[in-house]
């Protein structure tokens, strides 16, 4: 299977929507569990940074943000630096600005991408300092709406939940999430229109 077939895509979409609705209806659904509670994003008793969008809203996407209190689509540059501090480095890439922060994995950056001073994407790494099992994600979100190959390492895949604004690069055999990718929530069609042509449909590890 290179990517989900059209039928599977529809099935995944149905499952994803069902999962979202189920979670919305549930009263006390558990937060995304991680093995390191201190480092993991938890439902805050009080906002990490007062006034940050999503920080106390109970919004599913915000609670599962790639970086604490950074919500793609609404958080501003000033709010990012207020929450996370000044980046190690920043770089202008055309109309986008990337802010680089040390990640849970040594020598790897978490990246906050901004456009017009607003966050449009976050990429965060998971390692021993901030572990996340792929089975935990499946238990939390159900089956992904879309699956593609990934070049991260052999056996890794990109699993996307576009309506939640989440994509995971994970290795299911190792039951590990390697990196997380957050973006403004969108439908599967919009997601595929934006990224479909560049998601890896073929195994990149053919020699």
């Amino acid at each position: 299977m290179k990517t989900a077939s059209a039928n599977k895509t529809r099935a995944f979409r149905f499952l994803a929507i069902s999962a979202v609705m189920g979670m919305v209806l549930a009263c006390n659904f558990p937060l995304l569990r991680t093995a390191d509670p201190a480092a993991a994003p938890q439902e805050p008793a009080s906002p990490a940074v007062p006034g940050l969008p999503g920080a106390t809203s109970g919004n599913d996407t915000a609670l599962e943000a790639c970086l604490p209190a950074v919500v793609p689509g609404s958080t501003t540059r000033a709010q990012v630096t207020a929450a996370l501090g000044e980046p190690v480095q920043s770089r202008q890439e055309g109309e986008f600005e990337n802010l680089y922060y040390p990640s849970a994995v040594p020598k790897m950056f978490d990246v906050v991408t901004l456009k017009d001073q607003v966050v449009v994407r976050v990429v965060a790494h998971h390692g021993e300092k901030h572990p996340l099992g792929w089975s935990e994600v499946l238990a939390r979100h159900g089956e992904p709406a879309h699956q593609a190959y990934s070049d991260f390492s052999q056996g890794s895949r990109t699993y996307s939940f576009p309506e939640k604004g989440l994509a995971y690069i994970a290795n299911p055999e190792l039951d590990v999430v390697l990196a997380r990718w957050c973006f403004p929530p969108m439908g599967l069609d919009a997601f595929l229109a934006e990224y479909g042509s560049v998601l890896l449909e073929e195994d990149p590890f053919d020699r």
């Binding site: 790897m108 990246v111 449009v120 994407r121 790494h125 991260f152 990196a179 990224y195 560049v198 998601l199």
Partner: peptide, 13 residues
């Protein structure tokens, strides 16, 4: 090596 991020592509090496 950088695990990079271009806005219109998935993160990649």
């Amino acid at each position: 090596w950088i695990y990079g991020s271009f806005p219109n592509t998935p993160p990649q090496w």
